[in-house]
Amino acid sequence: MLPILVSSELAKGPTRFLFSLTDRANQLIAAPNVDVHLVFYDVDVAPDTVAFESDSRFIWAVEGERGLYVAHVEFSSAGRWGTRFNATFPDGRTQTVRADYDVRETTSTPAIGTTAPSVDTPTAAGAGDLGSISSDPEPEPRFYETSIAEALAAGKSFVVAFATPAFCRTATCGPTLETVKSVAEDYPDLTFINVEPYVMEVRDGSLQLVRSADGQLQAAPWTEAWGLVTEPFVAVVDDQGTVRAKFEGTIAADELVEAIEAL
């Protein structure tokens, strides 16, 4: 059994710890009926002494097909940490594996409890045509009515999804924006915002990526303002402009609902 640490930013403080498990032939072990208990070690302090333990929960990356695990933990310090992954299979068998990794002092994205960066993001009012600001083939108009700066200035709670469906040509990509859209249906009075994380422009009648001189993709100004190192990224911000929850990568609908209900 081998662990895959999916979180791009493991940092001191409250952390959403995303991971997966495979066997040595790359076959996915992560499944809803495989329970995984986590044991954490502060390697810099005492490499083999348990610092804390946590259960994890399975979430679908692609509903009914593939998923991974999430645990909400809190690292007491930056430095070298280790985790022992204890998996229990439906037949009662157990397997265990340990991985060590680095935990940073801070994250580049806004920490939970800090003020959300105010930044202008594209809206339908400014663009006119949703196709010029969203690569979603079925854009939800409500997601493009308010910019991040406008929501903060108005004292509105909001959910922002930095997500591009442009690259999700198959069902194997995590349908993050679809998850957010489905949750939004139950919160008609809450502000939802979707922004494309990359610099894009309309060419040949469709929204396309703008590459830099060396051919790389470019983070949009609002993406840089929020310090994203990966996408998709979803944040929940309260009416005081404080980041209350943030989710990197795959998100389960009930995770988002829980964060919204806590506003």
């Binding site: 895959i4 999916v6 997966s20 495979t22 996915l28 990356a61 692609v62 990526l209 998709p232 990568g249």
Partner: peptide, 18 residues
């Protein structure tokens, strides 16, 4: 075609998709 950018790798990593 069906190629994706390096920035999209983490989604495939998350689902352990080849």
């Amino acid at each position: 075609g069906d190629a994706f950018p390096p920035d999209h790798l983490r989604e495939h990593m998350a689902s352990a998709e080849s």
